[in-house]
């Protein structure tokens, strides 16, 4: 398959080819790729793409990257759920 058409991050529309290009420009770790390509910053917060990205970085560099920041919530939650209802 043409690597150009392989979408790695579905929320932010980042392709395999873009990752390789960014890697070659010097963005070699997950945090800087995330900032540069916005990969993993959409509604799924990287649940699909970050494991794929780890594998791609392993293929490119020979090192398996571990420095991933995981932030709550696990899945997007409406603000309304947290609203404090005063007790009657």
């Amino acid at each position: 398959m043409d690597k150009k058409n392989v979408i790695i991050c579905r929320c932010e529309d980042v392709t395999y080819e873009e990752i390789v290009r960014a890697f070659n420009e010097g963005y070699k770790d997950i945090e800087s790729l995330r900032r540069y390509l916005k990969i993993g910053t959409g509604p799924c917060q990287g649940k699909t793409c970050i494991p794929l990205l780890q594998r791609i970085l392993y293929e490119l560099s020979g090192n398996f990257p571990q420095n991933i920041t995981i932030r709550p919530p696990e899945t997007p939650v409406p603000f309304g759920i947290f609203v404090n209802v005063p007790k009657k």
Binding site: T41, P43, Q45, R71, P72, P73, P76, V77, P78, F79, G80, F82, V83
Partner: peptide, 11 residues
């Protein structure tokens, strides 16, 4: 209106 909008990330 933002009540039903979903929170995605907290830090």
């Amino acid at each position: 209106k933002l009540s039903s909008v979903r929170l995605m990330r907290h830090w």
